[in-house]
């Protein structure tokens, strides 16, 4: 099972690369946020996988839980920016 988990986690890392590409190329901040959010949800899975790889999953669950809870605070904060800043000044949204 360990090797399955190991390759799964490597595959997840590859998926994170894909998400990271979206986060890097944008084009808008919101696209980046989508990318980062996707990275976050994959990280949660990856954390548990690492827990299995260490055979100590009970210790990693807490981290994953905290992650799942807090990951969306950052996204909310960033989206909140647009709720408040709407039309306040015309900074280029696009590059």
């Amino acid at each position: 099972m360990d090797s399955i988990f190991l390759y799964s986690s490597l595959y997840l890392a590859f998926l994170m690369v894909l998400s990271l590409i979206r986060a890097l190329i944008g084009p808008t901040v919101l696209d980046r946020m989508i990318g980062v959010n996707a990275i976050g949800s994959k990280s949660v899975v990856l954390l548990i996988l690492i827990g299995f790889l260490y055979h100590r999953v009970d210790m990693f669950v807490d981290i994953a839980l905290a992650y799942a809870m807090l990951n969306f605070i950052a996204v909310l904060a960033a989206s909140r920016y647009f709720q408040k800043r709407k039309g306040l000044y015309d900074e280029a949204l696009y590059r």
């Binding site: 919101l30 959010n37 990951n71 969306f72 909310l76 647009f82």
Partner: peptide, 17 residues
């Protein structure tokens, strides 16, 4: 959390025009 976050992003996109 996920729908909430998704909604937050959509809402931001709409408000950003």
């Amino acid at each position: 959390a996920s729908p909430t976050a998704t909604h937050g992003i959509v809402d931001a996109g709409v408000r950003a025009g």
